[in-house]
């Protein structure tokens, strides 16, 4: 167990260095974009005079490295600054949006992960039958279509034609959980369709791979029924690749949902990031990107820890 803790500590340390590098990249990427915050905020209404006044008020007339280190100084003490456009604290601007994104991601994950793994086991069991083929074709079709297209198809049938679910997932205060789940069902379903195929096929491939092993043949000769061979004997050894794919897809659910948010008008963090980039609102862009980077780092770490825990050989390295 000691080695495991040491591994976690080391990976977290490396993660912090990654975040630092990400923050530098983001800062200078935003600097490289044409136009600055003052020009972007004032838009067509900008005059030289008002742009100069706004730059001075926000301190944008100072050199870029100085502004970066000022931001960094605040960030290490947990102060991510305030939005340059609205003056709102970054933490309060982001927290509600991020909570919304996490909610939608969890909603989709709770449906998608069990569905994908169960389907994966079933198609492994019934491999090369009609069921296997149909499941594969359907999931591959849904993963091959862009999310917004899937979204529009679902809207066309489920909200315009049959009017079962609302197309507009915008949240308002005072909704209870039932309303919330109902309102956000279509975006969650879209995400489920997008991520299921990857996880299901990995489960299927990992299990089928193992079915050729001698110990599975042994189990078969002993007379163990097929479903038990897969669930008890093959699956425990197949977890490592499955966990990796699940972690990757969970990260995608948090970071890759901008299009789904736009199509369903869902107030998540993706739209916030897009608006902030358009306005060159650096503190918000930085905070969003760091959250995304941290999500990837943590989920990857979780995947590695998960595969170590499920594999005794990795737990006791020589």
């Amino acid at each position: 167990m000691g080695t495991l803790l040491r591994l976690i500590a080391m990976r977290l340390g490396l993660g912090l260095i990654t975040l630092l590098i990400v923050s530098i990249l983001i800062f200078f990427a935003v600097e490289l974009l044409p136009g600055d915050l003052a020009e972007a905020v004032l838009g067509q209404g900008a005059t030289d005079e008002t742009v100069a006044a706004m730059r001075e008020q926000l301190g944008l007339d100072r050199p870029a490295p100085i502004r970066y280190f000022e931001w960094l100084g605040g960030a290490v003490t947990g102060d991510f600054g305030q939005s340059l456009v609205t003056g709102e604290r970054v933490s309060s601007a982001i927290s509600q949006r991020f909570a919304n994104t996490l909610f939608l991601a969890s909603y989709a994950a709770i449906i998608a992960v069990p569905l994908a793994i169960v389907l994966g086991v079933i198609v492994a069991l019934l491999r090369n039958t009609v069921f296997d083929r149909v499941a594969n074709v359907l999931t591959l079709t849904s993963i091959s279509s862009p999310e917004f297209f899937l979204g529009y198809i679902l809207i066309l049938f489920l909200s315009v034609r049959w009017q079962v679910f609302p197309s507009n997932a915008s949240l308002s205060g005072g909704m209870n959980l039932d309303d919330l789940l109902y309102r956000t069902f279509l975006p969650a379903l879209t995400l489920v369709l997008v991520v299921t195929a990857h996880m299901m096929r990995m489960t299927r491939a990992a299990i089928i791979n193992l079915l050729a092993s001698p110990y599975i043949e042994m189990a078969r000769l002993k007379g163990v029924p097929p479903w038990k061979r897969i669930v008890h004997h093959a699956l425990p050894n197949a977890w490592a690749p499955i966990i990796n794919v699940v972690a990757l897809n969970l990260a995608y659910l948090v970071t890759g949902v901008v299009l789904v948010e736009v199509v369903f008008v869902y107030p998540g963090i993706g739209q916030l990031l897009v608006d902030a980039v358009a306005k060159r609102d650096f503190p918000i862009v930085q905070a969003c990107c760091l959250i995304f980077a941290a999500t990837f780092i943590l989920l990857n770490l979780a995947a590695d820890v998960g595969s170590i825990l499920t594999n005794p050989r990795l737990r006791h390295p020589k």
């Binding site: 529009y152 809207i155 909200s159 315009v160 609302p166 197309s167 507009n168 736009v262 369903f264 008008v265």
Partner: peptide, 14 residues
């Protein structure tokens, strides 16, 4: 609702 399709759908679906 900046997205044109989402806005149109919102009206059509009532």
């Amino acid at each position: 609702i900046v997205d044109l399709n989402a806005r149109t759908t919102a009206l059509i679906s009532g």
